[in-house]
Simulated scan of single mutants.
Amino acid sequence: MLTNGNVQHVVKHSMAYGFVLSQPFSFYVDAYPMLQNEVLEESTTLEYGQHSAAVRVLQHKLNKLSYYDKSIDGEFGVLTEHALKKLQHENDITVSGKADIITVNKIVTLEREKYLRPLKSIKSTFHPGDTGEEIKTIQKALHYFGYYKEEIDGIYGPMTDRALKAFQEDNGLEVEKEVNEKTIDAIYTAEPQTENKQPKEELEQSQQTEKSQETKSDTKKVEKTETQQSFNTSNLITNAKELVGTPYVWGGTSPSGFDCSGFIQYVFQSLGINVPRTVSDIWNMTKPVENLSIGDFVFYETYKAGPSHMGIYVGNGEFIHAGESRGVEVSSMDNSYWSEKYIGAKRVVIQK
């Protein structure tokens, strides 16, 4: 969850502030460009084959910059790689197809210019009730920084007025009943604090660490105690094992038949915990873990790139899942089939 000082400052006047501070990033990824910047800059190099919220943010920004027009699904595939290569080529960056620190900074810079440069042509003073394309330009700029969340309608109404006053207050300007050239210039020059200042040595080290964590053969993890989970894992596993033998049914969500994510959703609902319906959505809303604990999710890449199958870790190198061949069963993670397709483990984080 993003709760650092910069983000709190950006959205503290937003109606969505409480929502932002209490929800996983996947629920508000499309909200404010500056929040998206935080996610990209906290990630290491993004590249082909990865699947994450950060990849979804990358796709979103490439779409806004007219380099990518396909599904924003968080899967770094051929089309995302192609879009990145095109951006790199047009901006004299080494064409690698990877979102490294140089490429990410260029994307952030280009997007900032897209939102803010049109302000430079505005020389008028505006008052509540005014309308027009220049008001739209101001609304878009305020949206970039997280102050304006309503429809970009070109109407200087109460919400636009509120956003402008919040910006003036946060930036040490006199809070006025109008928007003048002084305020517009301040919006244009406002510092978004988007530069990634992580030292090169630390960045390279973190990239190596991340790659080692994602190695598919690394299925033997150190088990930790149940106290790490915020729900009763004993009840969870008991409820799950009671369903062993239930047949596999595509789209199934009940004891008469489950698919893999339907099984997960049903078992967690037995504890009063709601999880998304699809493997991809569960992957996006859960937290990566280095060391497996009982009750964690284990993900596999089976019929398509990215997570497409999952189960619940039950200890001793085993997981319970709804498989197509034998329905709900307990399988070994060391099994040659599953060990080759393993892509990582994640954990449900219950907000308190």
Score class of each variant (00 low, 15 high):
Leu2Met: 05
His9Val: 00
Val11Asp: 01
Tyr17Phe: 14
Ser22His: 06
Glu41Arg: 15
Glu42Met: 08
Ala53Tyr: 10
Val57Arg: 01
Gln59Tyr: 00
Gln59Leu: 03
Leu65Val: 00
Leu65Pro: 02
Leu65Phe: 00
Ser66Leu: 03
Ile72Gly: 02
Ile72Leu: 11
Asp73Ser: 01
His82Arg: 14
Lys86Ile: 09
Leu87Tyr: 01
His89Phe: 06
Thr94Lys: 10
Ile107Gln: 11
Glu113Leu: 11
Tyr115Met: 03
Tyr115Glu: 02
Lys123Arg: 13
Thr125Lys: 13
Phe126Tyr: 15
Gly129Ala: 04
Thr137Trp: 01
Lys140Gln: 09
His143Asn: 15
Tyr144Asp: 02
Gly146Phe: 09
Glu151Cys: 01
Met159Phe: 11
Thr160Asp: 03
Thr160Pro: 05
Asp161Gly: 13
Asn171Trp: 05
Leu173Trp: 04
Glu178Pro: 00
Asp185Phe: 07
Gln193His: 06
Glu202Lys: 15
Gln208Trp: 10
Glu210Asn: 02
Lys211Phe: 10
Lys220His: 10
Asn232Glu: 15
Leu236Gln: 02
Gly245Met: 02
Gly272Asn: 08
Ile273Asn: 13
Asn274Pro: 05
Asp281Cys: 06
Met285Lys: 15
Lys287Trp: 08
Phe297His: 09
Glu301Phe: 03
Lys304Gln: 12
Gly306Leu: 04
Gly306Phe: 04
Pro307Asn: 06
Gly311Val: 06
Val314Pro: 13
Gly315Ser: 09
Val328Trp: 01
Val328Ile: 05
Val330Pro: 04
Ala345Met: 11
Ala345Gln: 10
